[in-house]
Design a protein around this nucleic acid. Structure first.
Lengths: 228, 228
DNA sequence: CGGTATCCCCCGCGATACTG
DNA sequence: CAGTATCGCGGGGGATACCG
C-alpha cells in the first residue's frame, strides 16, 4: 500500500512530500544547493542509502535537480516547484514553535547540526574583513565531536570539523544544550553570557560584538501561543 | 527509530503531523467536527484500527479533542493548535494543484469520497426552501456503490448511501471520472452539461440552477504553474 | 454504531560491503 | 568522495474477531 486512494490535492501533495525525511531534505535545500555529504550534516540520523533514495524520488517528482557544478562536483538544487514549498516548511516550523513544548531531549542535540545551522546565520559584515577563525568548543560532548572551527573570510564561511591550523581569534565555550537553547531563542543570549553559561575567550572586539554577528535560528523569535 | 534527532522546529512539527494519514485527518476536521465513522468516509483507504491510533496520537499531542456531543455520540474536534494547521493543509493542496500532473488513476476515484466532499459544498440558499432530494448516479461503478441521495432541507444536507424513499426532484447521471474532473476544476461544468457528459433529469428549475448551487472543490480554481 | 485487541505479514529501513 | 547493491530485521499497519 502506498497511495491514499484520493483525488484530493492535499493527498496528492502528501504522496510526494509526505514520506519520512522528505520535507527535511527540502528544508536543507531551501537554504542553499548542497552536495550529498553536505546534506548529511543537516540530517543527523538519515542513512546514506535512504538519502539517496529520497533524492531520487524528489528528482523524479520534479522538485530537485541534480547538477554537475564543476567536474565531479554534483549538487542538488530545488526547482521552482520545490522552492514553492518554502511557505509550507516555514509554516511547519512556526507552528511547532507556537505549539510544541520545547523540552529538548538529549537525543535531539547534535553538535554537527548545531554548527551546520549556525554557519548559515552569521552576519559576516559585522566580522573582520580579514580571515578570522572562531572556535566552538562544547565541553560536555565526546572529545571527538566537541570542537569546530568557523573560518570566516567575507562573505564566505567555512565549517571545519578538524583544526584548520590557523590562529584562533575567538573561542566560544558552552554546553551543547546551552548553545542550542540560545540558538533556538529559548534562552536569552545576554543572560547566558553574563552568567558565563557561554564563555568567550579571545579578541575583545569580537567578544563584544558576539550577539550582533551571531544571528540566531530563523525560528528564534516566534512567540509561543497563549497557553489555553 | 522514530524521531529525527534534531532540535529544528520543522522536524518537531513533522514528528507530530508527519506520519502517514495524519494531515488528511486534520484536513477532514478542518471542515467540521466528525464522528469516527464519518471520518472514514473522507479517508477511503484507512483502516479502522489505524484511524483509531492516529486519533489517539492527535489527542495526546493536543491537536484534537474527543467530545461527547450527546449521550453516546462522540465527535472529534480540532483544538486551536490543530486549527492553526489550516494554512499548511491548504498550502499543500494549492501546491499540488499548481505542480502535480493531475491524471487521476482509477484507484483515486472513490464515489463515497466524491459525495462526502460534495455534500460540504452545496449552496443551499440556491436550492428550494422545502425538503429536496437530489440523486447522483455513477453509471460506471458497481451497482452497490453507484447511487447516492442528498436530502437537502435548508440549511442541512444529509448524504444517504441507500434510498431514503422520498421523491427525487433531480437525478444527476455521469461517469464517476467525469464528476470528479468537473469537481476538481479539470473540466468545465457547462461543457460537461452541454455534451451530456453530465445528464440532469427532473425539475427544470433545479436543472437550470445546477452550476450555481453545486459549488466545486475549494481547490478547483487554483491555476497550474506556467509550464517551464 | 464506535471502537479495541490480536495476530501476522510485508516492506521500509539500517548495516554493510562494494564501485568508479 | 559520492554514491549503489544486497541482505536481513522490526515494526507499521491490514485483516479479523471481539466488546459495550
Amino acid at each position: 500500500m502506498s497511495g491514499y486512494g484520493q483525488f484530493c490535492p492535499v493527498s496528492q501533495a502528501l504522496e510526494i512530500v509526505g514520506e519520512r525525511w522528505t520535507l527535511l531534505i527540502v528544508r536543507e535545500l531551501l537554504c542553499d544547493d548542497y552536495r550529498f555529504n553536505e546534506l548529511l550534516n543537516g540530517l543527523p540520523l538519515i542513512s546514506r542509502s535512504l538519502l539517496s533514495q529520497r533524492l531520487k524520488s524528489l528528482e523524479e517528482a520534479g522538485l530537485v535537480e541534480r547538477q554537475e557544478r564543476e567536474k565531479g562536483v554534483v549538487v542538488y538544487r530545488l526547482t521552482q516547484a520545490g522552492r514553492e514549498l518554502e511557505p509550507i516548511v516555514m509554516g511547519l516550523g512556526t507552528w511547532a514553535r507556537r505549539w510544541v513544548e520545547h523540552n529538548l531531549s538529549p537525543d535531539d542535540l547534535d553538535p554537527v547540526l548545531m554548527m551546520w545551522d549556525l554557519r548559515r546565520r552569521l552576519d559576516t559584515q559585522r566580522l573582520p574583513a580579514e580571515q578570522t577563525v572562531v572556535q566552538f568548543w562544547f565541553r560536555d560532548v565526546p572529545a571527538k565531536v566537541s570542537r569546530y572551527w568557523l573560518c570566516v573570510e567575507r562573505p564566505d564561511v567555512e565549517l571545519c570539523m578538524t583544526n584548520p591550523g590557523f590562529d584562533v581569534a575567538l573561542t566560544v565555550e558552552a554546553k551543547l544544550r546551552t548553545m542550542v537553547e540560545v540558538w533556538m531563542g529559548h534562552r536569552d543570549i545576554t543572560e547566558a553570557l553574563r552568567t558565563r553559561a557561554i564563555e568567550l575567550k579571545g579578541d575583545p572586539k569580537l567578544t563584544r560584538a558576539f550577539p550582533s554577528w551571531l544571528l540566531l535560528s530563523s525560528f528564534a523569535n516566534i512567540p509561543r501561543a497563549a497557553s489555553t
